[in-house]
């Protein structure tokens, strides 16, 4: 259960990349809070800046402006040496299982690495812990002796989770951690993650594109569009309460297994504008059915409309 203790605070974070004299606005003014024990979903289409945001929170990418604080410590301006020690607090699980493993490093050593680097425990000690961890994530301990290519995608994700858990991080970031897996495996990994987050009572940022899956593992969901959060909503209320036209379009694009085949598909017209040429006003205006004159001039701010529900829209869909 999430508590009221704020663990991660992202304040007005921007990320701009210079691209041949122009500027790519990857993330434009994102602020949110993450509570201890909470899993926050981050949903959006490719290019919306969710991975950039995740990498900034993980400290792999410097912010252009804004602050990110973990337990009250702003780590965006830390010196590299200081940050290397601090980094243990944030761990990440990536999408493609195989590419996050060095092809020539055995599984056991891979899990031991953080403990050896951060806590200077002996190799033998770390290896003992690794075997315990392997069993905890549901794999036989003798997998420690295997190479990454000898494991399946789902098994590798379990190993990646075990490695992250070895040093008890405060925050776990899952960047499409289940995206490359088959559905049955996907559920197992999702359950494993939820179990760990509850047990360790840490915070988790769960990035994904499958709304139904993200909804099932998170307490709140942030919907991103073109570098901004357009809606922040309790996962339970997603279908009933969502008010932003983009969120509705996303929901309309989900094909449920039990769907009505005669239902026409609600299509979102056009393509998202290029993050290189941001026009004035709401980023979603050009594709939005509720667009008014005001939307093309001003950017709507993310405002709380009900407890635990914020929307950035001048004309939210009313119910």
């Amino acid at each position: 259960m999430p508590s009221n203790e704020i663990i991660l605070k992202v304040e007005d974070v921007y990320k701009k990349f210079p691209v041949k004299k122009r500027t790519l606005h990857a993330v434009s003014g994102i602020s949110f809070e993450l509570f201890r024990g909470e899993t926050l979903g981050l949903v959006g289409e490719s290019g919306c800046g969710k991975s950039t945001l995740a990498r900034m929170i993980a400290g792999s990418l410097p912010v252009t402006s804004g602050t990110i604080t973990l337990n009250g410590v702003d780590y965006t301006k830390m010196k590299p040496k200081e940050f290397r020690k601090f980094r243990r607090n944030i761990q990440m699980v990536f999408q493609d299982p195989l590419s996050s493993f060095s092809p020539r490093m055995k599984i056991g050593k891979y899990i031991c690495e953080p403990r050896i680097n951060y806590d200077r425990v002996s190799k033998e000690e770390a290896m003992k812990e690794a075997c315990v961890l392997l069993e905890k994530v549901g794999l036989p301990a003798d997998f420690a002796d295997r190479f990454p290519h000898e494991l399946s995608g789902g098994q590798l994700q379990r190993v990646a989770i075990a490695r992250a858990m070895a040093i008890d991080p405060r925050l776990l970031i899952c960047d499409e951690a289940t995206g490359a897996l088959d559905v049955s495996i996907q559920n197992q990994i999702a359950k494993l993650l939820v179990g760990f987050i509850e047990e360790k009572n840490m915070g988790c940022l769960f990035i994904g594109h499958d709304l139904a899956l993200v909804r099932s593992v998170t307490q709140r969901i942030a919907i991103m569009y073109l570098g901004r959060i357009v809606e922040l909503i309790n996962s339970e209320d997603l279908e009933k309460e969502c008010a932003h036209p983009y969120t509705q379009a996303l929901l309309g694009s989900v094909f449920d297994v039990y769907c009505d085949r005669s239902r026409p598909i609600a299509l979102l017209t056009g393509e998202p504008p290029s993050p290189l040429e941001l026009h004035e006003g709401c980023p979603f205006a050009v594709r939005c059915g509720n667009c008014t004159e005001r939307c093309t001039r001003e950017v709507p701010a993310l405002e709380e409309t009900a407890p635990g529900h914020s929307v950035a829209c001048f004309n939210p869909v009313s119910r």
Binding site: E198, A212, R215, S216, V257
Partner: peptide, 16 residues
């Protein structure tokens, strides 16, 4: 099992 495993919008949630 396969149909069961597909995440569904109104379906069960793992998180509390």
């Amino acid at each position: 099992d396969l149909i069961e495993a597909v995440p569904k919008m109104g379906g069960a949630r793992f998180a509390k």
